[in-house]
Design a binder for these strands. Structure first.
Lengths: 267, 267
DNA sequence: ACCTGAACACCGTTCAAGT
DNA sequence: ACCTGAACACCGTTCAAGT
């Protein structure tokens, strides 16, 4: 929502994963895909849906060491972290879970749905500032949110290409997006400038975190420190990579904040 | 270089495609991959390399309607535009060229190399301003370059995920990067702020163009206008999507320029 | 010099079937 | 309710061989 990149999805983005809180959903045998909003009610199909045996909250301690959507999502995130998006496959994940690939399709309609779940989990890691605190400086809150987003992008490099692939309307993504809007609203910019300012700031953080994560990953794969890698590709040494990067990030964020203040004063 | 997104490459980024101007390169039977810079001189292998029969400039009109790296690259770009990155395969491309997939490997070592070539071609479409013109306002030149980058990102949505995948040191990419640096240098910012300012501006444009391209693509796939799509997903109508977007882009760019001026005055 | 056929080790997903 | 085996239609890439 805030920024994105493309991995060229095969089918138009849908929102099906989020149709029901977290209960595993049947795929429906024929996968009738329509873009009409609300074309299938939560459990309207002809098949006998699960009777929700453990009461309204389906994840007590009742999960009998089985799969479950939560466990599948957790292991997906771990696998994506360690092996990367390119090597992530349903078969590989299933093997990790000690099960065949086809079992996964009971909990998830497609691989894309699974990735949406993992992505939303990752967004849950971004700490959001308390927007009801009227004494807090919006600049500090903006810096906190930007830093948090950057950190997550670097910690989970696979999220960058996914951010643009889906609509990102999962619960945790929504919390993040709302926080972004909330912080920018506190700047005192005129309403017409809000979305532009959101773009300016968070597209920047997205791009910055994306290269940074990529760089870190490349170094790890090459078995080389960031400074060593830099020395090899750029030649000149001098400062440490992390120091240069932190300086650039801070400078750019200060630039954006100064820009916001200038625009606010302009109207 | 200026910004990137990740499609999770399988192997560490190399620079092999650019080792020789544009002559097709043999793969080398065993593909000895080392990261040492300059570990293989242009033509030092044991295999008998092509004798460059048509003189130093290999592409006169001597291409006998065969493949050739240029034609392969051109068709790749066209295919990527029409069918997207996900559906782009060596087999599909070969079919388009009326040849088997394996033929391509005579001209290109890997699919990644091919994508690097296509990406560089796309960067060649960005018009760069005349940086030697001292009378020109850097703000105008910045706006021109930003608009050009945005346009290319939207016209070729597949480049977004590739920008981060490779080093982008092809000839056309290099021209673009140099122009970016040149424009920012003209702002009068102190040297330490230059890279940060480049980040702020071009990561923003990258992110902005990426969502925009994605949105356009999604609408096209759904066979629906942008405004119709917006109405369906957001509900409220009012302004046209293109108008809102242009307003946001302009506002954000103005914000960034104001930010640059503020930072310049600060030192 | 250029191109191919056959093969290897993978994919995501469906379907009918098991318990 | 949950899981599987077999199958379909794909991948990128290698290798030995053709002309």
């Amino acid at each position: 929502m805030v920024s994105e990149a493309d991995g060229a999805p095969e089918r138009p983005a849908r929102t099906s994963v989020w149709r029901q809180g977290k209960s595993p959903g049947r795929g429906g045998r024929k996968s009738e895909r329509r873009d009409q909003p609300e074309d299938r009610s939560p459990r309207a199909a002809e098949s006998p849906d699960p009777p929700e045996s453990a009461g309204p909250d389906s994840n007590g301690s009742a999960e009998p060491a089985g799969l479950g959507r939560d466990r599948i999502t957790d292991v997906s995130v771990r696998l994506l972290d360690t092996e990367g998006l390119a090597k992530f496959s349903m078969r590989r994940l299933a093997a990790e879970l000690g099960v065949t690939a086809m079992s996964l399709y009971w909990y998830v309609d497609t691989k894309d749905d699974l990735l949406e779940l993992a992505l939303d989990d990752a967004f849950g890691e971004v700490r959001v500032p308390d927007l009801t605190d009227e004494d807090a400086d919006w600049r500090d809150q903006l810096r906190e949110l930007a830093a948090g987003y950057r950190t997550v992008l670097v910690r989970h490099p696979w999220i960058s290409p996914l951010v643009g692939r889906y609509l990102n309307i999962g619960p945790r993504s929504t919390v993040f997006s709302s926080a972004v809007q909330g912080v920018i609203r506190r700047t005192g910019l005129a309403p017409l400038g809000l979305t532009g300012a959101i773009s300016a700031v968070f597209q920047f953080v997205y791009g910055f975190g994306t290269i940074e994560g990529h760089y870190v990953q490349r170094c790890a794969e090459a078995g080389v420190s960031q400074d060593e890698y830099y020395r090899r590709t750029r030649g000149t040494a001098g400062d440490t990579v992390e120091a240069m990067r932190q300086r650039d990030f801070t400078f750019a964020l200060d630039l954006l904040i100064a820009g916001i203040e200038a625009m606010r004063a302009r109207e």
